[in-house]
Amino acid sequence: MANILTLLFNGISEGALYFLMASSLSIILGLMGVVNFAHGALFVWGAYVFRMVFIQTGSFFFGIMAAMVAGFVIGFIFEKLFVSRVYGNVGAQIMITLGLSIVFTELIRVFWGPTPLIVTRPEFLAGVSHIQLGGVGTVIISHYRLFLIIVGVVIAILGHLLLTKTRIGMTIRAGVQSGEMVSALGININLYFTLVFAAGGALAGLGGALFAPLSQSINPEIGNMFQLDAFIVVVIGGMGSFMGSAVGSLFIAIMIALIGWYVPALSSVAPVTIMALVLIFRPQGLFSLLGLLRQAVKK
């Protein structure tokens, strides 16, 4: 029992990382119809820039900030110079972001070498608490994982408020519904495209920066790994849905944690199988079911 609780806790904390990747991917996909196959590269850049700044300045906070700035800037460059030229051509978008992902992952190898690098956790988050629960045993709570959950929740709330309560968010949601209509109303939708893409890059960078101290070892391959899981979350949560990706992240992360512990042989197969089943039977996403229910209740 305590074992399951620990696994759940670990799963939720990794869900926070998936959420950072998947929510930005999902919004970019919803707004621009672009699957950013270079999102993993942004994640890796976040991790490496974080490590560099963290070691240089010794400040965890500066490291995180630098990673987000790096993600924002690279995302901005991706959109402005490359992706914006192929809007409307799905094939070219997929291929160009794939090419960017290869080039930027290789650049990591050029600058920092292909071998894994070690990252330490900041001292104030390095601890572990053992919580004694009457009757069920000891649950192990890593402080860093707790911090991840808090960051995930904060980002989810901020993102939700930004999307539902502000004018910018309203425009983005309107753009997801119909980009043409938005630009017909005199709003510069291209500016929003660039900003959303860059902000998505910043979130991916943040994800990478937060992942580095969690695994304590980073290599250029981690981006692709996380990107695949983020794709699965995006499909399961419904493409273009912010809250859907939050629910999807939790679902996938907890599932991976539980299966990874009890049936490790299936840990890589199970999520993709679920993705395939969702695509065949519910292409609109598993958690758009929640939205449908809510609508039915309102009526």
């Binding site: 119809g33 699957v35 799905v90 997929i94 695949l228 794709f231 292409p283």
Partner: peptide, 9 residues
């Protein structure tokens, strides 16, 4: 788009 994502997986 979904095909691209799933085949990669």
């Amino acid at each position: 788009i979904a095909t691209a994502m799933i085949t990669m997986a």
